[in-house]
């Protein structure tokens, strides 16, 4: 016998699935309840987070280094005010600047340098044929995708064909293949969600 909470969850899941037929009051009720509960969880977690991680250290350990952060965090609440919303900009400016400072250098390392080096070093000849072809495709695909962006000139008449245009076209196909694979993965994820909920319903109602 499933606990009562599972039946409540099943009520909302079926309500959300009822949208497959058409929009209805059961679906709307389930949707609004989900949004409300989600908001409640977020606010509660944020409240305890500020209390534990910021106010706690200030009060208990005299860690006054957190005071500017607390003030800046408080100022962001002014975003809800039409007249005083501008006050929150200083907090946002600090957030953006800090994030940029933390990210920029390491992102160049992780996304550019450490991606290019393995592509160059990947063995093409002294390995098994499948890995070799795969590595060749990855290396040329990387170069072609970069070439597609870097050397595309929008001011050039479309009738003029450069000798290297085929390489840019190859880069375009590589990008399209990546987007296709990404979309297929997203779709797989959504179907996984759907299957997990069906399994949940089956268990709740004793089908499996």
């Amino acid at each position: 016998m499933a606990p009562i909470g599972d039946f409540v969850a099943a009520f909302f899941v079926i309500g959300l699935f009822s949208f497959i037929y058409r929009d209805n009051i059961w679906y709307k009720f389930a949707e609004y309840t989900f949004v409300g509960v989600g908001m409640g969880v977020t606010i509660t977690v944020a409240y305890w987070n500020v209390l534990n991680q910021t106010i706690g250290p200030i009060v208990n350990n005299a860690a006054y280094i957190f005071v500017p952060a607390l003030i800046l965090g408080f100022l962001t609440l002014f975003r809800v005010s039409r007249n005083y919303g501008w006050i929150s900009r200083s907090s946002l400016a600090v957030m953006f600047a800090t994030t940029m400072a933390i990210r920029v250098m390491v992102t160049i390392q992780s996304q550019v340098v450490q991606q290019i080096l393995p592509a160059i070093r990947a063995p093409i000849i002294n390995t098994d044929p499948i890995t070799g072809i795969s590595n060749l495709f990855a290396a040329t695909g990387l170069a072609a995708a970069c070439y597609y962006f870097v050397f595309t000139r929008v001011d050039m008449p479309r009738t003029i064909q450069r000798p290297s245009d085929w390489f840019a076209k190859y880069g375009q196909y590589v990008i399209m293949a990546y987007l296709g694979a990404s979309y297929a993965n997203v779709m797989t994820g959504r179907v996984s969600m759907f299957i997990e909920r069906i399994l949940f319903l089956c268990r709740t109602f004793g089908i499996v």
Binding site: Y178, S182, N185, V186, M187, T188, G189, R190, S192
Partner: peptide, 8 residues
């Protein structure tokens, strides 16, 4: 362990 959207 990533969801499908982040696997690539």
């Amino acid at each position: 362990s990533a969801i499908g959207a982040n696997t690539p």
